[in-house]
Amino acid sequence: MLPPLGALRVFEAAARLASFSRAADELHVTHAAVSHQIRQLEEWFGRPLFVREKRGVRLAPEADRLAEALSMSFERIAAEAESLKLRTKSEITVACIPSIATRWLIPALSEFLTAHTEAMVKVVYATAAQHLRETGCDVLITLGADTSDGVQCTRLFSRVNKPVASPRYLDGKGSLTDAEEIAAADLLHDETTAHWQQWFTKAGVAPSRSRRGPVFQDFNLLATAAIAGHGVALCPVEVCRREIKNGDLIVLSDISVLERESYFLISKVSRQKAVAAFCDWFQQVVVPASS
Results as ranks from 00 to 15, higher is better:
residue 27 L to F: 03
residue 18 A to L: 02
residue 88 T to M: 12
residue 258 L to T: 04
residue 286 V to M: 01
residue 21 S to D: 12
residue 197 Q to L: 14
residue 130 Q to Y: 02
residue 99 S to G: 01
residue 160 V to D: 12
residue 287 V to P: 02
residue 97 I to P: 12
residue 109 L to C: 06
residue 213 G to K: 01
residue 221 L to G: 15
residue 267 S to A: 15
residue 28 H to G: 13
residue 55 R to Q: 09
residue 139 V to A: 04
residue 166 S to I: 05
residue 73 S to R: 11
residue 90 S to I: 00
residue 48 P to F: 09
residue 178 D to S: 13
residue 1 M to C: 09
residue 46 G to S: 08
residue 166 S to H: 05
residue 231 G to D: 10
residue 73 S to C: 03
residue 71 S to F: 02
residue 39 R to C: 09
residue 244 I to S: 09
residue 115 A to V: 00
residue 52 R to N: 07
residue 203 A to D: 07
residue 103 R to K: 14
residue 257 V to N: 08
residue 147 T to G: 14
residue 117 T to E: 09
residue 279 C to L: 08
residue 200 F to E: 09
residue 192 T to W: 10
residue 112 F to N: 00
residue 158 S to Q: 09
residue 10 V to E: 07
residue 269 V to S: 11
residue 158 S to D: 13
residue 284 Q to M: 10
residue 92 I to W: 05
residue 7 A to V: 02
residue 137 C to F: 05
residue 97 I to T: 14
residue 115 A to W: 00
residue 122 K to C: 11
residue 139 V to I: 11
residue 97 I to Q: 03
residue 199 W to N: 10
residue 130 Q to I: 00
residue 73 S to I: 00
residue 207 P to F: 03
residue 101 A to R: 13
residue 96 C to A: 05
residue 114 T to Y: 00
residue 101 A to W: 01
residue 162 K to Y: 00
residue 271 R to N: 06
residue 268 K to T: 11
residue 5 L to W: 03
residue 12 E to Q: 15
residue 97 I to L: 10
residue 157 F to N: 01
residue 170 L to Y: 07
residue 189 H to W: 07
residue 139 V to H: 03
residue 134 E to C: 04
residue 228 A to N: 14
residue 149 D to M: 02
residue 12 E to K: 15
residue 149 D to C: 04
residue 291 S to F: 01
residue 284 Q to P: 08
residue 160 V to M: 08
residue 61 P to D: 14
residue 26 E to K: 08
residue 80 E to P: 01
residue 273 K to R: 13
residue 264 F to T: 04
